[in-house]
């Protein structure tokens, strides 16, 4: 019991991202309001971003700027002393992507609203069915 607890606690970052992803998925699947779906989607993406960010972190390491890197004499660089910057850099791109996705999604939602005067999915479906008749 204790061991399981320690694994759960020691990998809390993973549990966090799984939780966020599940919340996002739940919102996307179950919520009927289009904006809530879009929010769910954003939470889902944020979960993944959190995962990436957390894998770059090391205990006791510092930011990856080599302050004494300039100059002519050679230095020994201990990679373990620095946080891995790559996942964080990647996530800058991923955040840009997710913001862009959010923008497109909201624009589409506005278009849907103009078309049907509502953002509730069941009402839209009802209107579509009425149109078909």
């Amino acid at each position: 019991m204790n061991e399981i607890l320690t694994t759960i606690i020691s990998k809390y970052n993973y549990w966090g991202f799984i939780l966020l992803m599940m919340i996002g998925l739940y919102a996307m699947m179950v919520k009927k309001n289009l904006v809530k779906k879009i929010i769910g989607m954003n939470i889902f993406q944020t979960g993944i971003i959190l995962f990436y960010v957390s894998i770059g972190v090391k205990k006791g390491a510092t930011i990856p700027i080599i302050s004494h890197g300039h100059g002519k004499e050679k230095h020994v660089i201990h990679a373990a002393e620095y946080i891995n910057p790559l996942p964080h850099v990647l996530m800058l791109t991923a955040i840009v992507v997710s913001v862009a996705t959010l923008g497109v999604a909201l624009a589409l939602a506005i278009k849907v609203y103009r078309e049907y005067d509502t953002l509730e999915e069941d009402e839209i479906n009802k209107k579509i069915r009425d149109q078909a008749k």
């Binding site: 996307m28 879009i38 989607m41 889902f44 993406q45 996942p87 991923a94 996705t101 849907v112 078309e115």
Partner: peptide
């Protein structure tokens, strides 16, 4: 617009899964 929004949500889930796999 509605179909595109559905596509967007599905597509984003797909892309996110791929991103997770790469992670």
């Amino acid at each position: 617009a509605l179909s595109s929004l559905n596509y967007l949500i599905m597509g984003t889930i797909g892309a996110s899964f791929y991103l997770l796999g790469i992670g």
